[in-house]
């Protein structure tokens, strides 16, 4: 299948040349549609020092359908839902924005960029976004606390 070939290719590329701060492996040896990513919190962000566990599920229709990305590590971030799903809102991952030429590595880079610079205007967590905008210090503190609590 074209999808398998493509996923293998991407996996190969990403393993030889991983995006910064990311470690990628398959969650299960025999399932190339389930990726486990460990992402370091970006420097100069409240998440620095944290290790965030992200799961990427590649749908059967990949690359025509976008991968599904969830944070398995709790994170205090306006763009990541604060529940057990840990869904992240990224424009390029929406079904209607997704294009086959986009690669997982692009997605991961985007995730890291959003970690470094939260997008409060596109937040899924309105409360966190509000705090981010109005009381940056408190936001940073809570985010760091959560990193210490969950992302070690």
């Amino acid at each position: 299948m074209a999808a398998n070939k493509r996923i293998m290719k991407e996996l190969g590329e990403i393993n030889t040349n991983p995006p910064p701060g990311c470690a990628i492996r398959l969650a299960k040896e025999d399932d190339i549609n389930l990726w486990d990513v460990t992402m370091d919190g970006p420097q100069d962000s409240p998440y620095t020092g944290g290790k965030f566990h992200i799961q990427i599920v590649l749908p059967k229709e990949y690359p025509f359908k976008p991968p599904v990305l969830t944070f398995r590590t709790k994170i205090y971030h306006p763009n990541v839902t604060n529940d057990d799903k840990g869904a992240m809102c990224l424009g390029m991952l929406r079904a209607d924005e997704w294009k086959p030429p986009n690669k997982i590595v692009d997605v991961l880079k985007l995730v890291r960029a959003v970690l470094a610079a939260p997008q409060p205007d596109d937040a899924v967590e309105a409360g966190i976004a509000n705090e981010f905008k109005t009381d940056r210090k408190a936001f940073d503190k809570t985010a760091q606390d959560w990193v210490k609590k969950y992302a070690k």
Partner: peptide, 12 residues
């Protein structure tokens, strides 16, 4: 939504 990623992509 897309506006944000567009900046991020550059940052990225």
């Amino acid at each position: 939504f897309f506006s944000a990623p567009s900046q991020e992509m550059q940052a990225m």
